[in-house]
C-alpha cells in the first residue's frame, strides 16, 4: 500500500487545502479590502507619509501584541502589559535623565519589564495562579509602583539620543517602525524555526501531551510571561521617547488593544494555534481603522464600535472555522 493515500472520505484533501489557504490568507484579504475602500474614500490614505504614520502608530501596540501572542499561544493571557509599559518607561527615563547613556537606559527599561514578567511567570507557572488573576494583580501592582517610583510625576527633559528612539528616522523610516520590524522578525523566527517555538505551540495545544513528550511545561509557561514583560518594557521605552516624557499614566488599557490584535490575527484564546504574521496584520488592521476613521473625520465613538465589531467578527470566524472542522 502506498503510504500517502487518501485516508477517509470524511476529510477530503481538496477541501482541507482550500480551508488551509483561507485560514492563511483570509485576514490579509480583509486587510487589503479595507485598504482599497480607504484609498477610494480618502485621497491621502495611500500616501507615503500616511503609511509611515500608520506604521509608527502601530509600532507600540504591535510590539506588545507580539509578546501577547506568545502568552496566548500557551492558553494564557497577560493583562498587565499596559502597566508594565508605564513602569518600564519610567525606569528607563529615570536612568536616561541620570546621564547613563542610551544603552543603559534602554536596557533598564527592558530589564524592568522582564523582571515584572518574571513575577508574572512565577505566579502562573510555579504557584499555579490562573493567568487572568495573576496578571490582573500585576496590572494594579505595576501601575501603583509606577506612581510610587517618581511620586506620580512624569520624567521629562530626556536626552536627545533617547528621544531619537521615538522621533528619529533611519533614512526615510521612523525608528519605532524599525524597532517594531526587528522585534517582529526575531520573534517570528523564534516561533517558527526554533525548538522553543514548537514547545510554545505544544504547551498551548495540549499541556499533558507536551509533558508526556518530555517538554518542560513549567519552564515554557514561565518564559512566555518574561517575553511579554520584556517587550512591554521595550514598548515603554519607545512610547516615552515618542511622547518626549515618561508619563506614569501612560498605557492605560493598552492590554486590550494588544489582545485584540492577537485575536483578530487568528490566534486562538484556547491556545496552540496562531502566528506572529497574523498578529502583525491584526495590529495593522486596528491601526488602519483608527487612521482611516480619523482621516474621514468619523467620530471616535464610531471608531470604538468598529473596533469592537471587528474583534467579535474575528472570533466568530474562528469559532465557525472550528465547528466546520
Amino acid at each position: 500500500m502506498n503510504a500517502k493515500t487518501i485516508t477517509a472520505p470524511l476529510t477530503p484533501p481538496a477541501r482541507s487545502r482550500l480551508r488551509l489557504s483561507l485560514d492563511r490568507f483570509g485576514l490579509p484579504l480583509v486587510f487589503i479590502l479595507l485598504c482599497v475602500v480607504m484609498a477610494f474614500s480618502s485621497e491621502y490614505f495611500m500616501t507615503w507619509r500616511n503609511w509611515m504614520d500608520i506604521l509608527r502608530q502601530t509600532s507600540i501596540n504591535g510590539i506588545l501584541a507580539v509578546g501577547m501572542t506568545y502568552v496566548i499561544l500557551t492558553k494564557g493571557i497577560d493583562l498587565s502589559v499596559g502597566s508594565i509599559l508605564a513602569f518600564a518607561g519610567l525606569c528607563s527615563a529615570l536612568v536616561a535623565t541620570q546621564g547613563y547613556g542610551l544603552l543603559a537606559a534602554v536596557s533598564a527599561g527592558m530589564f524592568a519589564g522582564a523582571m515584572l514578567g518574571v513575577v508574572n511567570g512565577f505566579m502562573v507557572a510555579n504557584l499555579s495562579i490562573p493567568p487572568f488573576v495573576a496578571t490582573l494583580g500585576m496590572l494594579s501592582i505595576a501601575r501603583g509602583m509606577t506612581f510610587i517610583l517618581n511620586d506620580g510625576s512624569p520624567v521629562t527633559d530626556l536626552p536627545d539620543a533617547y528621544l531619537a528612539l521615538g522621533i528619529g528616522k533611519l533614512g526615510p523610516i521612523g525608528v519605532p517602525i524599525i524597532i517594531f520590524a526587528v522585534v517582529a522578525l526575531i520573534f517570528w523566527m523564534v516561533l517558527r524555526y526554533t525548538t522553543y517555538g514548537r514547545y510554545v505551540y505544544a504547551v498551548g495545544g495540549n499541556e499533558k501531551s507536551a509533558r508526556t513528550s518530555g517538554i518542560g511545561v513549567r519552564k515554557v509557561t514561565f518564559s512566555v510571561y518574561v517575553v511579554s514583560g520584556l517587550l512591554a518594557g521595550l514598548a515603554g521605552v519607545v512610547l516615552s521617547a515618542r511622547t518626549t516624557s515618561a508619563l506614569p499614566q501612560a498605557g492605560m488599557s493598552y492590554e486590550l488593544d494588544a489582545i485584540a490584535a492577537v485575536v483578530i490575527g487568528g490566534t486562538s484564546l484556547s491556545g496552540g494555534v496562531g502566528t506572529i504574521v497574523g498578529t502583525l496584520f491584526g495590529a495593522l488592521l486596528i491601526g488602519v481603522i483608527n487612521n482611516g476613521l480619523n482621516l474621514l473625520g468619523v467620530s471616535s465613538y464610531y471608531q470604538q464600535v468598529a473596533k469592537g465589531l471587528i474583534i467579535v467578527l474575528a472570533v466568530l470566524i474562528d469559532v465557525w472555522r472550528k465547528k466546520k472542522r
Binding site: 480618502s42 491621502y44 490614505f45 507619509r49 515618542r242 508619563l247 482621516l295 474621514l296 473625520g297 471616535s300
Partner: peptide, 25 residues
C-alpha cells in the same frame, strides 16, 4: 475643520494630530 477627543492623553493626541495632518496636508 476637525474636532475629536483625545481623552486628555498625550499619546492619543499625537496619533490624532498625525492623522489630521495627513488628511489635510
Amino acid at each position: 475643520i476637525e474636532k475629536k477627543t483625545a481623552n486628555w492623553d498625550r499619546a492619543q493626541a499625537l496619533t490624532l494630530t498625525e492623522d489630521w495632518l495627513n488628511a489635510h496636508p
